[in-house]
Design a protein around this nucleic acid. Structure first.
Lengths: 228, 228
DNA sequence: GTACAATATGACCGGTCAGTCATACCACCC
DNA sequence: GGGTGGTATGACTGACCGGTCATATTGTAC
């Protein structure tokens, strides 16, 4: 973790360093990122870098923590923040957050994808129950709850489906943004989710409908919507 | 592309070089891979490398072509190679090939994942029709055909679903292999798909059932299978 | 002012990198 | 033998790398 000295820095300087680091990590994965490039871009001396961070891995971990924090901000900024979402509204919200994050912070999203590829922790095994848990466990819990609420089919293998959702979450955002760009570049470059145009919303709904039809105990496919 | 000199090399030497290159590219993505390491491992002189390849990107492209070739071999080695597969049998076959490839050539699969992350070609636009085509177009064609045959729901956004299948194909294999390892390490380390144990087969079926339920016009969920 | 600690600096070190090139080797023909 | 074209070699170059450290600067307390 960054040193006390780093935390004492004026915010402006910290932001400068973080900005340079984000640019470097978005262009090069950790293995080939250059400290020299970062200090050059940030306008600090090489020696200062080592007063702030142990090594480049230390800085990278710090940037990752910023990413998680920004992600939380995005999630909390979404509408429909009520705590009592039904199963598939919750899933929609999580995936929407991923798209929104990609829109607002494409560099950070890219760094996160680099990181995911290089960290081999696909899943872990709960030491108490011996149960396998994919990724960070969010989707695992979501599916388990969904089954309890009779929303998700009981035959679904919870952990495998959780992993599937995890990779969809991680991979679909750049694609949707690319298609948004096609139709409405002005949306892609800066505005909020409430400004999504109709096409984008439809596209997102389509994905959700596929997932819901695949997972739901009693799928409510919106035939009326699609038949018009 | 590799020079004529390289193609004239005795096969043994070529294989040595390719083996060293694969090891290096599996450990480091292209950006941070080292020519020095490759020539050291392959037991050739640095100068020879430049008689065979333009640069490291040239070698990397050559390895990618080997990967696609090996992938074809895996696909063709699968049972049920009949040309008249119904829609979801075809999809099952494609995904099974991805898992099989991960089992047989984990290094090559890893190199391919690295490559996919770094190449930003999520999708392309057909210059004639203006239609957007995800990835290499296989899934796009699959879904279009599936709709024509009344197997896939007409409301599915073909290209988005194609992209979804693409990322599932690319991401699910390591996970399935990890779970296979859990249950039957001896299967993971070398035997063929026909030796998959029952658990593995069930897991794979479960994924297919989710996808089929999500995409099919008239899903045939095997309730009898899961209720037993 | 002085004293002292915290912080900032960039020249410098040993190492590795990609890429070059003069030289050596080898197979074949005359 | 000599000549020729294809191939192999590894020392070398200049650039960049991560990391160090003696020195300089700044902040603070008195």
């Amino acid at each position: 973790m960054p040193t006390k000295t780093y935390h004492n820095l004026p915010e402006e300087k910290r932001l400068q360093i973080e900005k340079a680091a984000i640019a470097e990590f978005a262009a090069n994965p950790l293995q080939s990122a250059s400290i020299n490039a970062i200090v050059r871009d940030a306008g600090i001396a090489k020696g200062s870098f080592y007063q702030y961070f142990e090594d480049i891995g230390d800085l990278h971990a710090h940037i990752l923590s910023i990413i998680y924090q920004k992600k939380l901000e995005v999630i909390n900024s979404l509408p429909l923040g009520s705590t009592n979402l039904d199963t598939f509204r919750y899933l929609r919200r999580v995936l929407q957050a991923a798209v929104e994050f990609q829109l607002r912070h494409p560099d950070l999203a890219r760094i996160e994808r680099f990181h995911r590829l290089n960290s081999n922790h696909l899943s872990s095994v709960d030491p108490e129950t011996g149960e396998r848990i994919s990724g960070d466990g969010r989707f695992h819990a979501f599916l388990t709850q969904g089954i309890l609420h009779d929303d998700i089919a009981t035959w679904v293998d919870v952990d495998m489906a959780a992993f599937m959702l995890e990779i969809i979450e991680g991979g679909i955002a750049p694609y949707l943004v690319e298609r948004i760009d096609d139709k409405a570049p002005e949306v892609a470059s800066g505005r909020l989710s409430s400004d999504y145009d109709r096409t984008t919303q439809d596209l997102f709904d389509n994905l959700m409908d596929i997932l819901e039809a695949g997972l739901a105990r009693d799928p409510q496919i919106r035939k009326d919507f699609y038949s018009k």
